[in-house]
Design a protein around this nucleic acid. Sequence first.
DNA 1: GTCTATAGGTAGATAGAC
DNA 2: GTCTATCTACCTATAGAC
Lengths: 206, 206
Amino acid sequence: MTKDLDTEGRILVAAKRVFVRKGYTGARMQEIADEAGINKGLLHYYFRSKDNLFSSIFEEAFRELAPRTIEIFESDAPLFTKLEQFVDRYIDFLTEHPYLPAFVIQEINQHPEALFEKIEKSGFRPNPMKLVMQIQMEIQKGNIRPINPIHLVLNLISMCVFPFVARPMMQHMLQVGDEDYTEFMKSRKDVILEFVKNAIMVNREP
Amino acid sequence: MTKDLDTEGRILVAAKRVFVRKGYTGARMQEIADEAGINKGLLHYYFRSKDNLFSSIFEEAFRELAPRTIEIFESDAPLFTKLEQFVDRYIDFLTEHPYLPAFVIQEINQHPEALFEKIEKSGFRPNPMKLVMQIQMEIQKGNIRPINPIHLVLNLISMCVFPFVARPMMQHMLQVGDEDYTEFMKSRKDVILEFVKNAIMVNREP
DNA sequence: GTCTATAGGTAGATAGAC
DNA sequence: GTCTATCTACCTATAGAC
Protein backbone atom coordinates (compact mmCIF):
# COMPACT_ATOMS: atom_id res chain seq x y z
CA MET A 1 0.00 0.00 0.00
CA THR A 2 3.01 2.32 0.13
CA LYS A 3 2.56 5.02 -2.46
CA ASP A 4 5.63 6.37 -4.19
CA LEU A 5 3.91 9.69 -4.78
CA ASP A 6 4.77 13.16 -3.62
CA THR A 7 2.79 14.60 -0.74
CA GLU A 8 0.25 16.38 -2.91
CA GLY A 9 -0.45 13.18 -4.78
CA ARG A 10 -0.86 11.21 -1.58
CA ILE A 11 -3.29 13.82 -0.27
CA LEU A 12 -5.35 13.63 -3.44
CA VAL A 13 -5.53 9.85 -3.32
CA ALA A 14 -6.50 9.89 0.35
CA ALA A 15 -9.02 12.69 -0.09
CA LYS A 16 -10.70 10.89 -2.95
CA ARG A 17 -11.09 7.77 -0.87
CA VAL A 18 -12.55 9.63 2.09
CA PHE A 19 -14.80 12.00 0.15
CA VAL A 20 -16.20 9.19 -1.99
CA ARG A 21 -16.81 7.11 1.13
CA LYS A 22 -18.33 9.80 3.34
CA GLY A 23 -19.45 12.61 1.06
CA TYR A 24 -18.47 16.23 1.55
CA THR A 25 -20.19 16.87 4.88
CA GLY A 26 -19.28 13.48 6.30
CA ALA A 27 -15.60 13.68 5.42
CA ARG A 28 -13.19 14.92 8.12
CA MET A 29 -9.91 16.65 7.40
CA GLN A 30 -8.37 14.56 10.18
CA GLU A 31 -9.42 11.35 8.48
CA ILE A 32 -7.95 12.48 5.18
CA ALA A 33 -4.69 13.41 6.90
CA ASP A 34 -4.54 10.02 8.61
CA GLU A 35 -5.25 8.19 5.37
CA ALA A 36 -2.49 10.17 3.65
CA GLY A 37 -0.08 9.51 6.50
CA ILE A 38 0.49 13.22 7.17
CA ASN A 39 -1.05 15.72 9.55
CA LYS A 40 -3.92 18.16 9.31
CA GLY A 41 -1.86 21.32 9.03
CA LEU A 42 -0.26 20.10 5.86
CA LEU A 43 -3.63 19.69 4.18
CA HIS A 44 -4.21 23.41 4.51
CA TYR A 45 -0.72 24.13 3.28
CA TYR A 46 -1.42 22.37 -0.03
CA PHE A 47 -5.13 23.12 -0.38
CA ARG A 48 -6.22 26.23 1.44
CA SER A 49 -9.59 24.85 2.59
CA LYS A 50 -11.72 21.76 2.73
CA ASP A 51 -13.86 23.23 0.00
CA ASN A 52 -10.85 23.67 -2.21
CA LEU A 53 -9.70 20.12 -1.71
CA PHE A 54 -13.17 18.81 -2.39
CA SER A 55 -13.41 20.73 -5.64
CA SER A 56 -10.28 19.07 -6.93
CA ILE A 57 -11.62 15.65 -6.06
CA PHE A 58 -15.08 16.20 -7.42
CA GLU A 59 -13.88 17.65 -10.69
CA GLU A 60 -11.53 14.72 -11.13
CA ALA A 61 -14.30 12.22 -10.41
CA PHE A 62 -16.70 14.01 -12.69
CA ARG A 63 -14.13 14.25 -15.44
CA GLU A 64 -13.48 10.53 -15.25
CA LEU A 65 -17.16 9.71 -15.36
CA ALA A 66 -18.69 12.23 -17.72
CA PRO A 67 -16.64 11.73 -20.86
CA ARG A 68 -17.53 8.08 -20.86
CA THR A 69 -21.17 9.02 -20.50
CA ILE A 70 -21.03 11.37 -23.41
CA GLU A 71 -18.46 9.74 -25.67
CA ILE A 72 -21.48 7.96 -27.06
CA PHE A 73 -22.66 11.36 -28.25
CA GLU A 74 -19.62 12.17 -30.31
CA SER A 75 -18.47 8.96 -31.97
CA ASP A 76 -18.92 8.43 -35.69
CA ALA A 77 -19.69 4.72 -35.52
CA PRO A 78 -22.97 3.22 -36.72
CA LEU A 79 -25.71 3.24 -34.09
CA PHE A 80 -25.60 -0.39 -33.06
CA THR A 81 -21.84 -0.44 -32.88
CA LYS A 82 -22.04 2.65 -30.72
CA LEU A 83 -24.52 1.09 -28.32
CA GLU A 84 -22.42 -2.05 -28.07
CA GLN A 85 -19.20 -0.19 -27.40
CA PHE A 86 -20.85 2.05 -24.87
CA VAL A 87 -22.33 -0.75 -22.78
CA ASP A 88 -19.11 -2.73 -22.86
CA ARG A 89 -16.77 0.11 -21.96
CA TYR A 90 -19.03 1.83 -19.49
CA ILE A 91 -19.75 -1.23 -17.40
CA ASP A 92 -16.05 -2.11 -17.44
CA PHE A 93 -15.23 1.36 -16.19
CA LEU A 94 -17.88 1.31 -13.49
CA THR A 95 -16.74 -2.10 -12.34
CA GLU A 96 -13.33 -0.58 -11.68
CA HIS A 97 -14.82 2.51 -10.02
CA PRO A 98 -18.04 1.23 -8.50
CA TYR A 99 -18.54 4.08 -6.03
CA LEU A 100 -18.08 6.99 -8.44
CA PRO A 101 -21.66 7.25 -9.73
CA ALA A 102 -23.26 7.31 -6.27
CA PHE A 103 -20.72 9.90 -5.15
CA VAL A 104 -21.25 12.21 -8.09
CA ILE A 105 -25.03 11.87 -7.93
CA GLN A 106 -25.12 12.43 -4.20
CA GLU A 107 -23.07 15.60 -4.32
CA ILE A 108 -24.90 16.98 -7.32
CA ASN A 109 -28.20 16.42 -5.52
CA GLN A 110 -26.95 18.29 -2.49
CA HIS A 111 -25.20 21.27 -4.05
CA PRO A 112 -26.52 21.46 -7.62
CA GLU A 113 -25.91 25.14 -8.34
CA ALA A 114 -22.40 25.27 -6.92
CA LEU A 115 -21.28 22.10 -8.67
CA PHE A 116 -22.78 22.92 -12.05
CA GLU A 117 -20.87 26.17 -11.91
CA LYS A 118 -17.64 24.26 -11.41
CA ILE A 119 -18.60 21.83 -14.14
CA GLU A 120 -19.33 24.61 -16.58
CA LYS A 121 -16.01 26.25 -15.89
CA SER A 122 -14.23 22.97 -16.45
CA GLY A 123 -15.46 23.14 -20.05
CA PHE A 124 -18.01 20.36 -19.89
CA ARG A 125 -20.57 20.90 -22.58
CA PRO A 126 -22.02 17.71 -24.01
CA ASN A 127 -23.69 17.92 -27.37
CA PRO A 128 -26.21 15.14 -27.81
CA MET A 129 -27.57 16.55 -31.08
CA LYS A 130 -25.39 14.36 -33.23
CA LEU A 131 -26.61 11.19 -31.57
CA VAL A 132 -30.21 12.41 -31.52
CA MET A 133 -30.10 13.06 -35.24
CA GLN A 134 -28.45 9.74 -35.91
CA ILE A 135 -31.27 7.97 -34.09
CA GLN A 136 -33.91 9.98 -35.92
CA MET A 137 -32.22 9.05 -39.17
CA GLU A 138 -32.42 5.36 -38.39
CA ILE A 139 -36.08 5.78 -37.51
CA GLN A 140 -36.82 7.55 -40.80
CA LYS A 141 -34.99 4.88 -42.72
CA GLY A 142 -37.22 2.36 -40.98
CA ASN A 143 -34.30 0.55 -39.38
CA ILE A 144 -35.52 1.01 -35.82
CA ARG A 145 -38.90 1.59 -34.21
CA PRO A 146 -40.02 5.16 -33.54
CA ILE A 147 -38.85 6.39 -30.14
CA ASN A 148 -37.90 9.73 -28.66
CA PRO A 149 -34.07 9.61 -28.87
CA ILE A 150 -33.69 11.19 -25.43
CA HIS A 151 -35.69 8.39 -23.86
CA LEU A 152 -33.69 5.77 -25.72
CA VAL A 153 -30.38 7.13 -24.48
CA LEU A 154 -31.77 7.58 -20.98
CA ASN A 155 -32.99 3.98 -20.98
CA LEU A 156 -29.55 2.76 -21.92
CA ILE A 157 -27.72 4.82 -19.33
CA SER A 158 -30.26 3.96 -16.62
CA MET A 159 -29.79 0.24 -17.12
CA CYS A 160 -26.01 0.59 -16.99
CA VAL A 161 -25.62 3.01 -14.10
CA PHE A 162 -28.51 2.32 -11.73
CA PRO A 163 -27.30 -1.14 -10.68
CA PHE A 164 -24.13 0.50 -9.40
CA VAL A 165 -25.93 3.29 -7.60
CA ALA A 166 -28.26 0.81 -5.94
CA ARG A 167 -25.51 -1.74 -5.44
CA PRO A 168 -25.73 -2.22 -1.66
CA MET A 169 -29.50 -2.61 -1.94
CA MET A 170 -29.14 -5.13 -4.76
CA GLN A 171 -26.44 -7.15 -3.06
CA HIS A 172 -28.51 -7.26 0.08
CA MET A 173 -31.59 -8.46 -1.75
CA LEU A 174 -29.75 -10.97 -3.92
CA GLN A 175 -27.60 -12.02 -0.97
CA VAL A 176 -24.37 -11.95 -2.97
CA GLY A 177 -20.86 -10.66 -2.27
CA ASP A 178 -18.73 -8.24 -4.25
CA GLU A 179 -17.21 -10.79 -6.60
CA ASP A 180 -20.57 -12.33 -7.44
CA TYR A 181 -22.08 -8.94 -8.11
CA THR A 182 -19.20 -8.02 -10.40
CA GLU A 183 -19.82 -11.24 -12.28
CA PHE A 184 -23.52 -10.41 -12.42
CA MET A 185 -22.72 -7.02 -13.96
CA LYS A 186 -20.37 -8.59 -16.49
CA SER A 187 -23.05 -10.94 -17.72
CA ARG A 188 -25.41 -7.97 -17.70
CA LYS A 189 -23.55 -6.40 -20.63
CA ASP A 190 -25.00 -8.85 -23.13
CA VAL A 191 -28.39 -8.78 -21.46
CA ILE A 192 -28.68 -5.02 -21.79
CA LEU A 193 -27.49 -5.01 -25.35
CA GLU A 194 -29.90 -7.69 -26.47
CA PHE A 195 -32.71 -6.04 -24.50
CA VAL A 196 -32.15 -2.74 -26.26
CA LYS A 197 -31.76 -4.34 -29.66
CA ASN A 198 -35.01 -6.23 -29.29
CA ALA A 199 -36.72 -3.11 -28.02
CA ILE A 200 -35.84 -0.95 -31.01
CA MET A 201 -35.21 -3.30 -33.92
CA VAL A 202 -37.89 -3.48 -36.54
CA ASN A 203 -39.31 -6.79 -37.65
CA ARG A 204 -37.92 -7.66 -41.04
CA GLU A 205 -40.82 -9.99 -41.84
CA PRO A 206 -43.70 -8.13 -43.55
CA MET B 1 -48.03 26.54 5.35
CA THR B 2 -49.39 26.51 8.91
CA LYS B 3 -49.62 22.91 10.06
CA ASP B 4 -52.40 21.99 12.40
CA LEU B 5 -50.34 19.16 13.81
CA ASP B 6 -49.12 18.48 17.29
CA THR B 7 -45.50 19.25 18.08
CA GLU B 8 -44.27 15.75 17.39
CA GLY B 9 -45.91 15.77 13.99
CA ARG B 10 -44.44 19.15 13.12
CA ILE B 11 -41.00 17.89 14.11
CA LEU B 12 -41.34 14.83 11.91
CA VAL B 13 -42.43 16.89 8.92
CA ALA B 14 -39.60 19.35 9.41
CA ALA B 15 -37.02 16.63 10.02
CA LYS B 16 -38.02 14.79 6.89
CA ARG B 17 -37.61 17.92 4.83
CA VAL B 18 -34.18 18.70 6.23
CA PHE B 19 -32.81 15.14 6.24
CA VAL B 20 -33.98 14.50 2.69
CA ARG B 21 -32.44 17.79 1.57
CA LYS B 22 -29.13 17.54 3.42
CA GLY B 23 -28.64 13.90 4.31
CA TYR B 24 -27.83 12.67 7.80
CA THR B 25 -24.42 14.29 8.24
CA GLY B 26 -25.43 17.51 6.52
CA ALA B 27 -28.62 18.03 8.53
CA ARG B 28 -28.45 20.28 11.61
CA MET B 29 -30.68 19.94 14.63
CA GLN B 30 -30.92 23.73 14.69
CA GLU B 31 -32.22 23.79 11.13
CA ILE B 32 -34.83 21.17 11.93
CA ALA B 33 -35.95 23.13 14.98
CA ASP B 34 -36.22 26.31 12.92
CA GLU B 35 -38.19 24.54 10.20
CA ALA B 36 -40.56 23.14 12.83
CA GLY B 37 -40.91 26.54 14.49
CA ILE B 38 -39.70 25.26 17.83
CA ASN B 39 -36.35 25.20 19.57
CA LYS B 40 -33.52 22.73 19.78
CA GLY B 41 -34.17 21.57 23.32
CA LEU B 42 -37.58 20.34 22.38
CA LEU B 43 -36.17 18.09 19.70
CA HIS B 44 -34.27 16.16 22.33
CA TYR B 45 -37.32 16.06 24.53
CA TYR B 46 -39.29 14.20 21.87
CA PHE B 47 -36.49 12.22 20.24
CA ARG B 48 -33.59 11.57 22.50
CA SER B 49 -30.91 12.01 19.86
CA LYS B 50 -30.29 13.01 16.26
CA ASP B 51 -29.77 9.36 15.42
CA ASN B 52 -33.13 8.50 16.89
CA LEU B 53 -34.90 11.18 14.93
CA PHE B 54 -33.16 10.14 11.75
CA SER B 55 -34.20 6.52 12.21
CA SER B 56 -37.84 7.51 12.36
CA ILE B 57 -37.50 9.52 9.19
CA PHE B 58 -35.52 6.96 7.25
CA GLU B 59 -37.80 4.09 8.16
CA GLU B 60 -40.80 6.14 7.12
CA ALA B 61 -39.17 7.04 3.81
CA PHE B 62 -38.10 3.49 3.19
CA ARG B 63 -41.50 2.14 4.08
CA GLU B 64 -43.13 4.50 1.63
CA LEU B 65 -40.75 3.59 -1.14
CA ALA B 66 -40.11 -0.11 -0.73
CA PRO B 67 -43.60 -1.57 -0.82
CA ARG B 68 -44.20 0.10 -4.14
CA THR B 69 -40.96 -1.39 -5.41
CA ILE B 70 -41.92 -4.86 -4.35
CA GLU B 71 -45.68 -4.86 -4.76
CA ILE B 72 -44.81 -6.01 -8.24
CA PHE B 73 -43.42 -9.15 -6.63
CA GLU B 74 -46.57 -10.14 -4.85
CA SER B 75 -49.49 -9.28 -7.12
CA ASP B 76 -51.46 -12.00 -8.83
CA ALA B 77 -52.08 -10.15 -12.08
CA PRO B 78 -50.84 -11.41 -15.46
CA LEU B 79 -47.29 -10.34 -16.28
CA PHE B 80 -48.04 -7.56 -18.73
CA THR B 81 -50.76 -6.10 -16.55
CA LYS B 82 -48.32 -6.15 -13.68
CA LEU B 83 -45.63 -4.31 -15.65
CA GLU B 84 -48.13 -1.73 -16.79
CA GLN B 85 -49.50 -1.09 -13.32
CA PHE B 86 -46.05 -0.92 -11.83
CA VAL B 87 -44.72 1.69 -14.25
CA ASP B 88 -47.83 3.79 -13.95
CA ARG B 89 -48.10 3.80 -10.18
CA TYR B 90 -44.42 3.96 -9.45
CA ILE B 91 -43.73 6.98 -11.62
CA ASP B 92 -46.79 8.71 -10.21
CA PHE B 93 -45.52 8.09 -6.70
CA LEU B 94 -42.00 9.29 -7.51
CA THR B 95 -43.38 12.39 -9.18
CA GLU B 96 -45.01 13.27 -5.87
CA HIS B 97 -41.91 12.38 -3.86
CA PRO B 98 -39.07 13.11 -6.28
CA TYR B 99 -36.31 13.31 -3.67
CA LEU B 100 -37.03 10.07 -1.84
CA PRO B 101 -35.01 7.69 -4.04
CA ALA B 102 -31.83 9.76 -3.96
CA PHE B 103 -32.18 10.13 -0.19
CA VAL B 104 -32.66 6.44 0.48
CA ILE B 105 -29.90 5.41 -1.90
CA GLN B 106 -27.48 7.96 -0.50
CA GLU B 107 -28.00 6.90 3.10
CA ILE B 108 -27.87 3.20 2.28
CA ASN B 109 -24.59 3.74 0.47
CA GLN B 110 -23.13 5.52 3.48
CA HIS B 111 -24.31 3.31 6.32
CA PRO B 112 -25.30 0.01 4.72
CA GLU B 113 -24.91 -2.29 7.73
CA ALA B 114 -26.66 -0.05 10.23
CA LEU B 115 -29.58 0.69 7.92
CA PHE B 116 -30.13 -2.87 6.76
CA GLU B 117 -30.36 -3.84 10.39
CA LYS B 118 -33.14 -1.32 10.91
CA ILE B 119 -34.82 -2.47 7.73
CA GLU B 120 -34.72 -6.09 8.77
CA LYS B 121 -36.24 -5.27 12.13
CA SER B 122 -39.01 -3.32 10.46
CA GLY B 123 -40.08 -6.62 8.88
CA PHE B 124 -39.03 -5.90 5.30
CA ARG B 125 -38.50 -9.17 3.50
CA PRO B 126 -39.32 -9.07 -0.20
CA ASN B 127 -39.91 -12.35 -1.93
CA PRO B 128 -39.21 -12.06 -5.64
CA MET B 129 -39.57 -15.80 -6.25
CA LYS B 130 -43.19 -15.54 -7.28
CA LEU B 131 -42.42 -12.98 -9.96
CA VAL B 132 -39.30 -14.84 -11.07
CA MET B 133 -41.28 -18.02 -11.56
CA GLN B 134 -44.04 -16.17 -13.35
CA ILE B 135 -41.52 -14.80 -15.82
CA GLN B 136 -39.90 -18.19 -16.30
CA MET B 137 -43.34 -19.62 -16.95
CA GLU B 138 -44.00 -17.09 -19.70
CA ILE B 139 -40.64 -17.91 -21.24
CA GLN B 140 -41.36 -21.63 -21.22
CA LYS B 141 -44.75 -21.06 -22.77
CA GLY B 142 -42.95 -19.13 -25.49
CA ASN B 143 -44.82 -15.92 -24.78
CA ILE B 144 -41.72 -13.85 -24.12
CA ARG B 145 -38.11 -14.08 -25.13
CA PRO B 146 -35.66 -15.87 -22.83
CA ILE B 147 -34.14 -13.51 -20.27
CA ASN B 148 -32.88 -13.82 -16.71
CA PRO B 149 -35.87 -12.61 -14.68
CA ILE B 150 -33.66 -10.68 -12.29
CA HIS B 151 -32.23 -8.66 -15.16
CA LEU B 152 -35.69 -8.00 -16.55
CA VAL B 153 -36.96 -6.62 -13.26
CA LEU B 154 -33.77 -4.64 -12.72
CA ASN B 155 -34.11 -3.13 -16.19
CA LEU B 156 -37.62 -2.02 -15.43
CA ILE B 157 -36.80 -0.50 -12.07
CA SER B 158 -33.66 1.18 -13.44
CA MET B 159 -35.58 2.96 -16.18
CA CYS B 160 -38.19 4.17 -13.71
CA VAL B 161 -36.00 5.23 -10.80
CA PHE B 162 -32.73 6.42 -12.31
CA PRO B 163 -34.23 9.50 -14.01
CA PHE B 164 -35.29 10.72 -10.55
CA VAL B 165 -31.96 9.97 -8.93
CA ALA B 166 -30.12 11.78 -11.71
CA ARG B 167 -32.77 14.46 -11.97
CA PRO B 168 -30.61 17.57 -11.40
CA MET B 169 -28.10 16.28 -13.96
CA MET B 170 -30.83 15.57 -16.47
CA GLN B 171 -32.57 18.90 -16.00
CA HIS B 172 -29.28 20.65 -16.39
CA MET B 173 -28.45 18.83 -19.61
CA LEU B 174 -31.91 19.13 -21.09
CA GLN B 175 -32.20 22.72 -19.83
CA VAL B 176 -35.71 22.25 -18.49
CA GLY B 177 -37.47 23.31 -15.30
CA ASP B 178 -39.36 21.22 -12.77
CA GLU B 179 -42.72 21.28 -14.54
CA ASP B 180 -41.23 20.30 -17.87
CA TYR B 181 -39.32 17.47 -16.31
CA THR B 182 -42.46 16.19 -14.59
CA GLU B 183 -44.18 16.27 -17.95
CA PHE B 184 -41.21 14.44 -19.48
CA MET B 185 -41.53 11.71 -16.85
CA LYS B 186 -45.25 11.40 -17.41
CA SER B 187 -44.79 10.79 -21.10
CA ARG B 188 -42.01 8.40 -20.16
CA LYS B 189 -44.51 5.94 -18.71
CA ASP B 190 -45.70 4.84 -22.13
CA VAL B 191 -42.19 4.91 -23.54
CA ILE B 192 -40.87 2.54 -20.90
CA LEU B 193 -43.81 0.22 -21.21
CA GLU B 194 -43.55 -0.05 -24.98
CA PHE B 195 -39.79 -0.37 -24.75
CA VAL B 196 -40.07 -3.32 -22.38
CA LYS B 197 -42.85 -4.94 -24.34
CA ASN B 198 -40.87 -4.76 -27.55
CA ALA B 199 -37.81 -6.05 -25.77
CA ILE B 200 -39.43 -9.20 -24.44
CA MET B 201 -42.37 -9.97 -26.71
CA VAL B 202 -41.93 -12.80 -29.13
CA ASN B 203 -42.66 -12.37 -32.78
CA ARG B 204 -45.89 -14.10 -33.59
CA GLU B 205 -44.94 -14.51 -37.26
CA PRO B 206 -43.03 -17.77 -37.84
C1' DG C 1 7.69 21.31 3.80
C1' DT C 2 6.27 19.35 7.86
C1' DC C 3 5.15 19.39 12.44
C1' DT C 4 2.53 20.78 17.15
C1' DA C 5 -0.51 23.68 19.44
C1' DT C 6 -4.31 26.29 19.61
C1' DA C 7 -7.70 29.67 18.20
C1' DG C 8 -12.48 30.25 16.86
C1' DG C 9 -16.62 28.45 15.73
C1' DT C 10 -20.43 25.23 15.87
C1' DA C 11 -22.40 20.75 16.58
C1' DG C 12 -25.32 17.59 19.65
C1' DA C 13 -26.89 17.11 24.07
C1' DT C 14 -28.27 18.47 28.97
C1' DA C 15 -29.97 21.34 33.03
C1' DG C 16 -33.18 23.90 34.93
C1' DA C 17 -36.60 27.87 34.99
C1' DC C 18 -41.31 28.56 33.80
C1' DG D 1 -44.31 20.87 27.21
C1' DT D 2 -41.58 24.58 26.01
C1' DC D 3 -38.11 27.72 26.63
C1' DT D 4 -33.08 29.71 27.54
C1' DA D 5 -28.59 28.95 28.85
C1' DT D 6 -24.79 26.14 28.97
C1' DC D 7 -21.66 22.00 28.68
C1' DT D 8 -18.66 19.23 26.16
C1' DA D 9 -16.80 17.63 22.07
C1' DC D 10 -15.26 18.20 17.72
C1' DC D 11 -14.20 20.52 13.33
C1' DT D 12 -11.83 23.83 10.23
C1' DA D 13 -8.37 26.81 9.98
C1' DT D 14 -4.26 29.39 11.50
C1' DA D 15 0.23 30.49 13.98
C1' DG D 16 4.55 29.50 14.69
C1' DA D 17 8.59 26.28 15.85
C1' DC D 18 11.76 23.38 13.39
